[in-house]
Amino acid sequence: MNAMSKPDTPVLELRGVSKVYSVKQGLMGARKPLRAVNDVNLTLGRSEVLGLVGESGCGKSTLAKILLGLEAPTSGEVLVDGEAIGSHDRLKLARRIQPIFQDPYSSLNPRKSIAEIISLPLRVHGIGDHASQTKAVREILDVVGLPARVMNTYPSQMSGGQRQRVAIARALIMKPEIVICDEPTSALDVSVQSQILNLLGELRREFGLTYLFISHNLAVVEHLATRVAVMYLGRIVEEAETGALFDASRHPYSRALLDSVLTPEPGLGVPDTHLGAAYPNPINPPPGCAFHPRCASATAFCAARAPRPVASGDGLVECHLYDPETEMFQR
């Protein structure tokens, strides 16, 4: 399957993906559309790691659910290896895209043994007999650094780090091409977090995996990702190679986000993000550029017209400041 795909075909491509929920406000309120994901376009090459960052409520988790087939997009297409995959094709999708969730205490069924949890994908897809499934579980346990004797234990007997290794084993046993990591280390202690991040890095190199890495920990994203996409109110406002984004971010929101990272450097104090107003209500997004009420560079023009994505460097930025066709363009 992998050999057939052309080398330059992106392993994952999103074309104009949107998800609109209909939300009722108050007891008698009329239903209003909530654009959780708004016309997102993304391409992801083989064994890339795309870091997806943004504040809570920006739509990154909804995007992950769409990719996993847990939610159907309202419009747009998801392509894997250039092939459009309908979200109704859950079995097909499941073989290629697998998740690793945030909370290893909630992601493993407490009533099932570790062997049952890890072999579930094989059993659902009817791959192999019991003996070959057991063998596969043994092999994948070795890959994620757990001894084979944990097979008969239960999640409650394990530490958080071990559970997350089990979750990784379950995600990898069907040899997917893409793994969606939704805050995979935020529930873990610092010393365990580094072990899991190292494991994810090794697995990517070993199996040529492609990650969509969702995290609010920007230091971790900078460490692991090859590309980074910044999401704000359902849209990707900037997307670039990791180095370019962290060293010279362009969108004012990306800059504010990066400024608020607290690196362990004493004496620097807490930075001022200049993000005055609170995160807007996604049911009533601001007109024009959704970020303009919090933006230090905003003018009346930003409130009137929504920016369009502009190619810059090898990525995209969605801001009038970088659009040569607007009056705000500088340089």
Binding site: L68, R90, A94, R95, P99, D103, S107, N109, V124
Partner: peptide, 16 residues
């Protein structure tokens, strides 16, 4: 719980 989402993402049927 996330293990239900995980089973859905695996492609497990609703009865299962």
């Amino acid at each position: 719980r996330e293990y239900v989402a995980a089973a859905q993402a695996i492609g497990a049927s609703t009865p299962r």
